[in-house]
Structures are given as structure tokens and as C-alpha cells.
Design a protein around this nucleic acid. Sequence first.
RNA 1: UCCUCCUUAGCUCAGUUGGUUAGAGCACAUCACUGUUAAUGAUGGGGUCCUCCGUUCAAGUCGGAGAGGGGGAGCCA
Length: 489
Amino acid sequence: MAFENTNMFNQRIKIKQLLSGTATGTEVVVMGWVRTFRNNQFIALNDGSTNANIQIVASLGKFDEAILKRITTGASLKITGTVVESLGKGQTVEVKATSIEILGDSDAEKYPLQPKKHSLEFLREKAYLRFRTNTFGSVFRIRHSLAFAVHQFFNDRGFLYLHTPIITSSDAEGAGEMFRVTTLPLEGAPKNDAGEIDFTQDFFGKSTNLTVSGQLEGELGAMAFSDIYTFGPTFRAENSNTTRHLAEFWMIEPEVAFNDLEDNMNLAEDFIKHLIAYVMKNNIDDLQFLDTRLAEEEKQLPTEKRSGLGLIEKLKFVVENGFERITYTEAIEILLNSTHYKKKKFTYDIKWGIDLQSEHERYLVEQHFKKPVIVTGYPAAIKAFYMRMNDGCEPGKETVAAMDILAPGIGEIVGGSQREERLEKLEARMDAMHIPLHEMSYYLDTRRFGSVPHAGFGLGFERMVQFVTGMTNIRDVIPFARTPKNCEY
RNA sequence: UCCUCCUUAGCUCAGUUGGUUAGAGCACAUCACUGUUAAUGAUGGGGUCCUCCGUUCAAGUCGGAGAGGGGGAGCCA
């Protein structure tokens, strides 16, 4: 029996487990942080395993005043006690304490978190403590589940998780401004004959940066393992100050040999649905909390700004319905025929060849289709060099086999394409876009030796977390956000 | 980077046409009460009104510059 093992008897039980049906009369040890201490008798204790607190009862007169004084919001405790049916109304069971040990004090006057609602902006500045709030507890448990579901999805389909490098020497991807990585001194860096900084003397003997995407390396892996994915941090030094951009963010990039654009879309749609379904199955408590929170927040908004669907309703809808699939050309036609356009309500003009603006994407997703939309066949002129040229295009209206998935409230959540596997066409495109071929010969080699049709996409992990949690600011879905002028903790 | 709004107690906010000692709720401290649910009641402490410069007899309030933050746009995931 477990009771013969004193270690077992002392072992901590997580609050989530305790609340999910521990028999009354059981002796338990729980540890956690004090959320509130009511009536000098009732401790709401939380250990992060769930938003639900366990109520600890410190019966009057049984404990030292000196100990009770130290039970303050934020303090950490070790409680030994008995699980009993609760006499109060807020919970079914509680723990009647037989011993209370203060593990760590928390000066009530200085502890920043109070048992009340704080603004997200305030908590953002206290990012090291916000995990202890219900909102961020839910957000980061869901973030964890999503990360796990990513690996589960690909593993179940026989994909290989490829670790692509963080430091790269390639700067030809054009995905954005890069952070330089160097050990050269800022003052008095060595110069070459041309007066430029001499990177041959740098750590790697050449100019290096933090990666903006693992895609090119991912393609190299797919040319051997057929199905790979990457999942790691990426870095963009863009001066973007928005609710959906970070300087350091996590991206998932599957790359699949022998897939065409259609396969690619199917994979992306299945993937997104799997992630949502996983969270709905495993984090329903946290979703419910966020759903309620969001509904209360929406009450403050004017009617026209409300989303109409609750968070869980929205997720359920996405899982159960097919994404709308349209071509770029069709999208332009829908926009041109919209009353919104005819009433001149768009700021940016619309004609074939433009890149779709946020307002256009939002109209398609939120007004016209009211569901996620996959747009394919963008003009070649506005897309990256590695995207496959569509055959048989009208001259001047060349398109590529690209696809973007647009989600309500977030905009572009996935960007992908079938890749150009034909060497001559790829070289011609790179030439036209002034991409130095010699620096990319490793990449071009995949087209020289056993090139195959292949396709892949990138999904911004934080944007996915935003979509699932309903958090409107991307800084609130990553533990420690890195944005322009902000790198705290 | 551009547009726009904001900055008053630890937090959330009020502060009238510029006027004398800048307020509230919560938090915190003390006391009371004791099956509470963000406990309750009483009392108390707590302020660089973001910073600098200017206008004025007088600036939290008006003007200028700067800093920080929110929202939107661009770039993108």
C-alpha cells in the first residue's frame, strides 16, 4: 500500500488532480501560491495546474497568529491536511489544514498583484508575475497544449522534426530586416581594402544573422525525408509596432516533397483544425474562462465592433466547416463588386496586381465569407522568388502557386506555396529579382539533383495562440515579448 | 516609420470657464467580526498630477518640445 511509503505520503498532489475527484478523508500535501486569504480562515491556493483554486481551511484558533499573519497574497505555502466536503457554497471539496508551512513570504504592501482585475497593459510590464493571473494561466497552458499538438499532428503523419539553424549566413530570403550576429567590436571593427567592415575576421568568417525563416533549410530536408517540419524561433528586425508582430516569434514550417498546392492547402487546413480540436478537448476549462473574459470585454465595445460569435463557438465553427478557397483574381472581383467598394469605404484602391491590404483581407474574411479563407494564385510580382510560376498565364498577369490563409481577427495566419522545382525557371526568377545565384548554389543544387515538386507553408505560432485564446495583442500570448524598444527580462 | 489617443495614489479612474488644503473605489496598515467566495464594517497612512520649457497674479487644467504606453496603418507570420 502507498501508505507504507512515507515518501508517497509526503508527495505533493497537484490541485488539478486533487479537484478532479480525490476521495474525502484522504490525507494530502498541496503546495502553491496564495491568491486570497479570506476571513483569516480561508486560503485560496493556486499551483498553476488549473485556474481553479483549492480552498484551504485554517480553523480558528488552531494556528499561530504569527503564521496567519504571513499568509498574504503571493506567499507560497506547503499545506498538509485532509480532503473534506466543503461547508461553503463556492466549492465541493476543500482541505482542512493540519499543518501550514510558509515556504516563501510575500510582502503584501509591495506585491504588485492584487485580488482584483488588472489591465493587460499593467500586467505586460509585470510579465514575470502575470503567469500567476487567471488570464495568463489559461493563455500559457493553452500555448503549451498547442505546441504539443503541433508535434503530435506531424509525428502521427510520419513527418520528421528538422532543427534548422538559428544563426544563418543567408540573407537572400527577403523575409524582412535581420538581426546581425557578430563578435566584432562596435568601435574600430576591422576594415577591408574597400573600407567596408571585414567580416572574414568575424567569428564565422562571414557576415551572419539570426534566421528569419527555416524554410530554405527545410526544403533541403524534404529532399531526403519527404516530409519534414520545423518549429522554432525566428527573428525579424522590422520596426513593426502592431498587435500582431514580434521581433522574436515562433514559426512552424512544414515542407513536403511530392505535394502540390492542393495537398498543401489540405495539410494546412487539417493542421489548423487539429490544433483547435486538441485544445477544445484538453483545455476546455481554460477556454471557458477566456470565453467569459472575452464576452465581458466585448460588452464594453460598440455593437458594430463586436464579433458576434463567442470564442468557443468560433473555434467550433472553424473545426466543423471547410475553409473558403478562392483565387486572388476572384478575391479582386469580389472586392470590386462589393457595396463597400462602391461606397468608397476602402482606403486603398483595388485593381488586379495590388497586394491585398489588411482592410481587404478583413472584408473578405469578416464581412463576405465570415469564415477562414484561403487565397491562391497571387501575382508573381508581389511574391517571393521560390514560389512556383503558374503555367499558361496571360502575359502581364503571371501568377504563382501561393496560398495565404486568412483568419478572422488576425489576418494572415499561414503563408505558403508550391515551390519552383524547375531549375531554369527558378534561376530566371532569381536573376530578375537580383538575388545572387552564387550565394544560393546549395539551394539550387536541390533542383539539380533529383528535383521534385514540393510545397510547404509557415504558420505563425503566436498568431495561432491569439486565434485560439482570443487575445487581441500578440504580446500577451508569448511569455516575454520582444518588440521594438522592449526587451525586458 | 506614419496617423491618432492617452499619461493624476501601488492599481482602476474622477477632477467644471485656469483659483486657495487634488478626490473616489480597490489595495495596504490597525481594530472588530468569524463558513468566507475579489468576505464585511470602522479608522488610518499613502501624490515629482510623466519630464523640461513657456504663457499667466495663479497651471493637474492652456501652448511647445521630449519620453513612455494604447489603438490603427505599412511590412509580414
